[in-house]
Nucleic acid binder design. Structure first.
Lengths: 102, 102
DNA sequence: CGGGTTATTACGTTATACGATATAGCGCGT
DNA sequence: ACGCGCTATATCGTATAACGTAATAACCCG
């Protein structure tokens, strides 16, 4: 393992993935692999989904086949947008400092 | 409180702050407030410092006055750099999706 | 009808974030 | 001299969450 993990806050990755359109759990795992290069285990993913639904940042859609799709809510989109904008600033500031680092 | 926290992984913020030059704990709190707009409590900060030192991503310098300064190691710089570069990609991808979101 | 893929749920361990609290030296005004 | 607020660090407890593993089951294809 590296010193630090990678950037992989599951809830953020899930919301970002759902901005694309509704997806069910398994599809999220696959999409996030492409989006972020991280594979979320089922424990991580479904626990995070439950928390996000509880906070009303996502909402469940009617089950189809064996799939439980989720959709991002306006509150969820808002939350992830401000998170990502904040992150962009911090990441830029951090990289700038590192560039100057001997 | 917002739905999600802000982007604030203490260890990343600490390493980014130390890229500027060695600092002791209290100075880190102040610097990170400006860098990221987050105030780390003492519990968060000193615990994170201990973990980072244990992983040799930072190293302690001799105590001066009542201050215990830390310096980032090459391994620490490397770790935070790859973390931030990864984060930059993911954040950009996420914001792109959100921009297309109705 | 058997094996791999899709899909979800449940469980246990470990890490960590974070607030609260404790301690103490220091500088300054009165 | 006294108290107050700021600097500075340490420690404890709790709640949350990440994550691996395993269990379950339906589906498709050969």
């Amino acid at each position: 393992m590296d010193g630090l993990g990678r950037f992989a806050e599951p809830s953020v990755l899930i919301l970002a993935s759902l901005a694309d359109g509704p997806k069910h759990g398994y599809a999220l795992i696959k999409d996030i692999e492409e989006l972020a290069g991280t594979t979320l285990g089922p424990g991580t993913l479904y626990a995070a989904l439950a928390r996000l639904e509880q906070r009303q940042l996502i909402e469940a859609l009617p089950e189809q086949d064996r799939r439980r799709p989720y959709r991002i809510t306006p509150a969820g989109a808002q939350a992830v947008r401000s998170y990502l904008e904040d992150a962009r600033r911090v990441v830029a500031a951090g990289l700038k400092r590192l560039a100057a680092f001997a």
